[in-house]
Amino acid sequence: MARVALDLPHLQYILAHLPDHPDHMIGKQARGIIQNSISAINKSNEQLEFEWFSDPSNQDLPLKNFIQLPPEVLNSSVTDFFSTFKNPVYVRVINALLRRGCKYIRDLTELTIFQFGSTRNLGDRSHLAILQALNEKKNPSS
């Protein structure tokens, strides 16, 4: 079977030209496959920003080595910090971090990447959401 490699713009172009309500099952399957591919590409692009997180050589280093936060953010409680975001994933994040013993953002940034990655009830989506939230508040000079 021949393989075809398409980048994001090509997939979006093809999807835009497929009929919205295809009469054939093959059209429905093609639309689903293309939509899943676009979603996967977008997800992997989000994770590229935090490539250091999945690098095995960084597993023993604390998060604070990669995300420098101002003192007012470091001294804020986990509950206060994550409550300011609209994303519902943060309710689970707050509970998991508190169970982990992270009452303040400073406690979170002192965890090694391995400790953070192995925190119970936090999956890939939660890790990404936490890193994105911290990244939003980092020092402008870093």
Score class of each variant (00 low, 15 high):
residue 35 Q to K: 10
residue 119 T to F: 03
residue 79 T to G: 01
residue 6 L to T: 05
residue 123 G to D: 15
residue 96 A to D: 09
residue 96 A to G: 12
residue 47 Q to K: 15
residue 139 N to L: 12
residue 80 D to L: 06
residue 137 K to C: 12
residue 34 I to C: 03
residue 70 P to A: 12
residue 36 N to E: 12
residue 49 E to D: 13
residue 85 F to S: 05
residue 55 D to L: 12
residue 31 R to M: 03
residue 106 R to M: 02
residue 119 T to G: 01
residue 11 L to I: 07
residue 135 N to G: 02
residue 137 K to E: 12
residue 48 L to F: 09
residue 124 D to L: 15
residue 77 S to G: 15
residue 14 I to Y: 06
residue 114 F to E: 11
residue 124 D to P: 04
residue 41 I to A: 11
residue 126 S to Q: 11
residue 122 L to Q: 08
residue 122 L to W: 09
residue 116 F to C: 00
residue 9 P to D: 09
residue 60 D to Q: 14
residue 1 M to A: 13
residue 112 T to L: 06
residue 133 A to M: 08
residue 33 I to G: 04
residue 122 L to H: 09
residue 20 D to G: 06
residue 137 K to Y: 04
residue 103 K to G: 10
residue 84 T to D: 08
residue 97 L to M: 12
residue 87 N to E: 07
residue 56 P to A: 14
residue 42 N to G: 05
residue 12 Q to W: 03
residue 25 M to P: 02
residue 129 A to S: 14
residue 69 L to A: 06
residue 24 H to E: 13
residue 88 P to A: 08
residue 74 L to C: 13
residue 10 H to I: 07
residue 111 L to T: 01
residue 106 R to A: 07
residue 37 S to N: 10
residue 19 P to M: 06
residue 142 S to E: 04
residue 85 F to R: 08
residue 37 S to A: 15
residue 112 T to E: 05
residue 98 L to R: 15
residue 83 S to C: 04
residue 79 T to R: 10
